[in-house]
Design a protein around this nucleic acid. Structure first.
Length: 500
RNA sequence: GCCGCAUUCGUCUAGAGGCCCAGGACACCGCCCUCUCAAGGCGGAGACCACCGGUUCGAAUCCGGUAUGCGGUACCA
């Protein structure tokens, strides 16, 4: 048993969650680092809440993060693959039934005829008496005759697993030695509902056993339930896998990260322009570090350095600001053509929202990449940073065009002078260096601070006070549009002085 | 309630007895660069290493207790 087999087992009851993505990532990292196998299994037994749309969202989302699995359901048109299928629990029902049958036959589980009302009443009683809540074992020793009598009444039965007294101990790879007395498990627990559908604690063990999972890497929220799983592995006659419980990802108030308090859908981050390289890098460093001061790491570099036993034990607050910083770092590292490709969908979204008037071509976007690449915290910021290039006419607040040290007359004068100078140079000389020389010379002869002139022009043609470098921006805008916008802004500024 | 886990700057973390009166990063502040904004460079502020006791010549690091937080405790996953 040297081949490492790990799995991620999401439930398609919601869109891909940050926490699920992180767990998937750590499993993937461990598998790749160890040269093992990474398996994806869909836990879709909660039929009421599971949907095909969520399933696709999860599969596509993981795929989009670059986390490929070796066995599991297909994605993007590919078929399910792997020798341990099926990989959807609803297709594995016979397996659970067979396992349940075995436990029942060995008397390691028994039929329980208690009704939900019985259970509820008992729970209340225990609570009132200040006792820990646990199943009292009402049906644990029912004889055949008693069972027959109950069944004759038409009572349905769930299946309960017998919890044996004792201490369950295991060595968690991230937490170390953990011991839990089985008396704290709440008594014999249900593994199959009265309606015949199996419960999570049961299916997860049957599947992990059947799929020959060697390392169970999952969230800390499962730590307390691990003894139940271990008991089941033993009862089923399977070797108990190694466990590694990852620290939880937290809301800012340090509770388990939730939709209520944080943005948890990976989709939403992607839609805002967080790129997979940054998401993966950030998530990998949430609860783990290389032990060095390296921080910007690509997936393959993380795989090479990954060490499960170095994972932290304390929960980690999800810090969106740090993610944004890291996203910016990764955007700056992108190949310009690649960046242009990735920017297009966001520009198209801006177009649909009416924030820009037309969708530029790949080449146009590629041309402005040098102007925007280091100014984008997210891909979604492209509209803010360069949207003025793709609108017929930017909204210009004339008051903003007037630099702090200037009055309206000077500003109108400056814009007109700049317009005239640029026009005089002609379209052939319309390049960044030439523009800068021309405009600096203009400021010089007129006794203006170059910065003031530049700012007036900047706001005149973009409507904004913060933009990419001015001259490159004018070039991107083009000769004709630059002149037209200067004229328009000049006139708007002049109107400022006109009597109302 | 019971059981379990955790606790180093606001946040993510380094630290596995002396290298630590605790290092890096994000955020914050300042300076430099500079046509604005970014980016980048430099610097600053920010942690009595939760608390109390112990072990030790020496503890953020080991042990015990306390506190606080979180998780689990379902015929949810």
């Amino acid at each position: 048993m040297t081949d490492v087999r790990v799995r991620i087992a999401p439930s398609p009851t919601g869109p891909l969650h940050i926490g699920t993505a992180r767990t998937a990532l750590f499993n993937h990292l461990y598998a790749r680092h160890m040269g093992g196998t990474f398996i994806l299994r869909l836990e879709d037994t909660d039929v009421a809440r599971s949907t095909e749309a969520f399933e696709r969202d999860i599969l596509d989302g993981l795929h989009g993060l670059g986390l490929e699995w070796d066995e599991g359901p297909g994605v993007a048109g590919r078929d399910e693959r792997g020798p341990y299928g099926p990989y959807r629990q609803m297709a594995r029902l016979p397996l659970y039934a067979a396992a349940a049958e075995r436990l029942l036959a060995a008397d390691l589980a028994y039929r329980c005829y208690c009704t939900p009302d019985d259970l509820e009443a008992e729970r209340k009683r225990q609570d009132a008496a200040g006792e820990p809540s646990r199943y009292p074992g009402t049906c644990a020793a029912l004889g055949p005759a008693e069972r027959a009598a109950l069944e004759a009444q038409g009572r349905s039965s769930a299946l309960r697993f017998r919890v044996t007294p004792g201490v369950v101990a295991f060595d968690d790879i991230v937490r170390g030695h953990v011991e839990i007395d089985t008396s704290a498990l709440g008594g014999d627990f249900v593994i199959v509902r009265a309606d015949g559908t199996p419960l999570y604690h049961f299916t997860v063990v049957v599947d992990d056993a059947e799929m020959a999972i060697t390392h169970v890497i999952r969230g800390e929220d499962h730590l307390s339930n691990t003894p139940k799983h271990i008991l089941l592995f033993r009862a089923l006659g399977h070797q108990v896998p190694a466990f590694a419980h990852l620290p939880l990802i937290l809301n800012p108030d340090r509770t388990k990260m939730s939709k209520r308090k944080s943005q948890t859908a990976v989709d939403d981050y992607v839609a805002q322009g967080f790129i997979r390289e940054a998401l993966v890098n950030y998530l990998a460093l949430l609860g783990w570090s290389t032990g060095t001061e390296e921080e910007i790491l690509a997936l393959d570099e993380i795989v090479a350095r990954f060490d499960l036993s170095a994972v932290n034990r304390a929960g980690a607050v999800f810090d969106r600001e740090r993610l944004e910083w890291m996203n910016g770092q990764w955007i700056r590292r992108l190949d310009p053509d690649d960046l242009a490709d990735r920017l297009l969908p966001f520009l198209d979204a801006d177009r649909i929202l009416g924030r820009i008037d037309r969708l530029p071509s790949h080449d146009e976007v590629r041309a402005i990449v040098p102007l925007v690449q280091e100014r984008l915290p997210t891909l979604g910021a492209i509209g803010d940073v360069a949207g003025f290039l793709f609108v017929a006419q930017p909204a210009v607040d004339p008051a903003l065009v007037v630099p702090k040290r200037w009055d309206t007359a000077t500003t109108a004068d400056g814009l007109e002078a700049a317009r005239a100078a640029i026009e005089a140079n002609g379209e052939v000389a319309f390049d960044a260096e030439g523009l800068e020389a021309t405009l600096r010379a203009l400021a010089e002869v007129r006794g203006w601070k170059a910065g003031d002139l530049f700012m007036a022009i900047r706001v005149a043609v973009t409507g904004r006070t913060a933009t990419p470098p001015l001259f490159e921006t004018l070039v991107a805008l083009g000769f004709g549009r630059t002149l037209a916008r200067l004229v328009r802004a000049r006139d708007l500024v002049r109107e400022l002085d006109a009597p109302a």
